[in-house]
Computed example of a mutant assay.
Amino acid sequence: MIVDVDWDRCEGHGICAEQAPEVFSLDDEGELHHAYDGADVPDELVPGARSAVSVCPVAALRERA
């Protein structure tokens, strides 16, 4: 599974980091960091990543088919 981030849409709410802290994090300025940007999320982290995609309040995350 690959998660794409619409960087222009992301507002740094951090809900994704709460759902999948091994995949997403926010820095001190509130900027999102995606540990697997452009790469497959490891199988054991997929449930959290899918949850993060589904709860993003601005739909900045999308699972790539």
Rank of each mutant, 00 (worst) to 15 (best):
M1C: 07
I2H: 07
V3Y: 01
D4L: 15
V5A: 12
V5P: 05
V5W: 03
V5F: 08
V5E: 05
D6H: 11
D6A: 10
D6Q: 07
D6V: 06
W7Y: 14
W7E: 12
D8T: 10
D8I: 02
D8S: 14
R9I: 13
C10W: 02
C10G: 03
E11R: 13
G12W: 02
G12V: 03
H13A: 08
H13V: 04
G14P: 04
I15E: 14
I15R: 14
C16M: 05
C16I: 01
C16Y: 02
A17N: 06
A17M: 07
E18W: 04
Q19D: 09
Q19L: 11
A20P: 06
A20T: 01
P21K: 06
E22S: 12
E22H: 05
E22L: 09
V23F: 00
V23A: 02
V23Q: 01
F24A: 01
F24G: 00
S25M: 00
L26F: 07
L26T: 05
L26P: 03
D27F: 09
D27L: 08
D27A: 09
D28M: 05
D28R: 11
D28Q: 10
D28E: 14
D28Y: 02
D28L: 09
E29Q: 14
G30V: 02
G30K: 02
G30R: 07
E31L: 10
H33N: 11
H33K: 03
H33E: 10
H33C: 05
H34N: 07
H34F: 06
A35G: 12
A35T: 11
A35F: 00
A35I: 00
G38K: 06
A39G: 02
A39P: 00
A39C: 02
A39N: 07
D40F: 06
D40L: 10
V41R: 01
P42G: 10
P42Q: 12
D43G: 13
D43I: 09
E44S: 07
L45Q: 12
L45N: 05
V46L: 14
V46W: 01
P47T: 09
G48W: 09
G48C: 09
A49L: 06
A49I: 04
R50A: 10
R50M: 13
S51A: 15
S51T: 12
S51R: 13
S51W: 01
A52Y: 06
A52T: 03
A52K: 01
A52D: 06
V53M: 11
V53D: 09
S54Y: 00
V55T: 13
V55S: 13
V55Y: 15
V55N: 10
V55I: 11
C56G: 10
P57R: 12
V58F: 10
V58I: 12
V58N: 08
V58W: 08
A59Q: 15
A59G: 03
A59L: 13
A59K: 12
A59Y: 14
A60D: 13
A60N: 13
A60Q: 09
L61W: 08
L61S: 08
L61P: 12
R62M: 14
R62W: 11
E63Y: 11
E63L: 15
E63V: 15
E63G: 11
E63T: 11
R64L: 11
R64D: 11
A65S: 15
